[in-house]
Amino acid sequence: MTAQHFDRRDPRLDRSRSAILSAAVALLSEGGVRQVTIDAVTARSGVARSTLYRHFPTSAELLAAAFQELLPPLRLPDPDASPRDRLLQLVLAQADQIDQAPTVAAVVWLSTLGLSGVPSGADDQSRLTALREHIIERYRGPFEAVLADCLPPSGRDIDVAAAQLVGPLMFNALITGRPSDREFCVRIVDDFLAGRDPMTA
């Protein structure tokens, strides 16, 4: 047999992995972390439990893959824009993502503080830690970079600042149902920056 023969990937593996991930992503979108169980994913995907474990040996690994499948990175702001405009661009991008999947967006931001409610051993904890770092890099990281330019060193609490900016978007999506349109995002950013260092203008 040729080397080319050994390099061929069984297309059934790709199909089963895709079906598993599609089911996990749907469950995550509909009900959050607790819905992404092995039983629920096998039932929805039609893939056998043994096949699922070939792709994802633990539920934490499956959950991590579902998050990474579902979460596109935030659009990065124009580096030549003012700090205020870059911050507004990030808030608008986050508002768009929350509007598309509010429950998942809430889970994402909770996950930057640590995933809970997922049974896990040492291996699972390391995977969840890697997932948390991935989420922070994709979602908190861009805010951290821009907020470093917007906040004076004495008041640079990135966690609080990010919560003040993203919290109203979450509240609209999950509680009031009010759209977080451009006008709303402008008000969030301008209220946030009011009274802060003038370099943000």
Rank of each mutant, 00 (worst) to 15 (best):
A43K: 13
A81G: 03
G46F: 13
E137W: 08
A81C: 02
P152W: 13
G46Q: 14
V33N: 12
R178M: 10
L174F: 06
F192C: 04
V186D: 03
I175F: 09
R8F: 02
T58P: 13
L62I: 07
F6K: 15
R49C: 00
A48D: 13
L128E: 03
V108E: 03
Q68H: 04
T176M: 06
I20G: 01
P153L: 14
L70K: 12
S154Y: 09
V36W: 04
A161M: 05
R138L: 15
S120C: 00
H5A: 15
P73T: 12
A162G: 04
Q164P: 00
R15L: 15
R138M: 11
V33H: 08
R84V: 01
A43C: 05
C185E: 02
D85E: 11
I175E: 12
E61W: 00
R140G: 07
V108D: 00
V160F: 11
Q35C: 10
N172E: 04
A64C: 13
R178Y: 10
C150N: 09
S126V: 02
Q125R: 15
S50C: 07
A101L: 01
A65L: 06
A26F: 00
L27A: 07
P179V: 10
T112C: 02
I38M: 12
R34N: 06
D123L: 07
P168S: 03
F192Q: 05
V107K: 01
L52T: 13
T112V: 05
I98A: 03
P142L: 08
V189H: 07
R54N: 13
A43T: 12
I20W: 08
E137K: 15
P168N: 01
G177I: 07
A93G: 03
G141H: 09
M1H: 11
L74W: 04
G117R: 10
V118I: 10
V189K: 11
V33L: 13
R187C: 05
L28C: 07
T112Q: 01
V47R: 07
V36R: 06
A173R: 09
G141I: 11
L128P: 00
D7Y: 08
D124A: 02
P73M: 08
L174R: 13
Q125T: 07
L27I: 01
V47T: 08
P153Y: 10
A3H: 09
V189I: 06
L70S: 14
R34W: 00
S18C: 08
A145N: 11
L62H: 10
E61F: 01
A60N: 11
L74S: 07
G141S: 06
A24R: 10
S45G: 08
V47G: 01
Q4W: 07
E183S: 14
A3P: 02
S82A: 09
L70F: 06
F143Y: 15
E30I: 00
R49T: 09
R196Q: 10
V186I: 12
I38T: 14
L169M: 06
R8C: 01
Y53V: 09
F171K: 11
D159R: 14
L169G: 09
L74G: 08
L131W: 02
M199S: 13
P142K: 12
Q4E: 15
F171N: 08
S154L: 11
D157H: 09
V160S: 12
F184S: 08
R49I: 04
E137N: 10
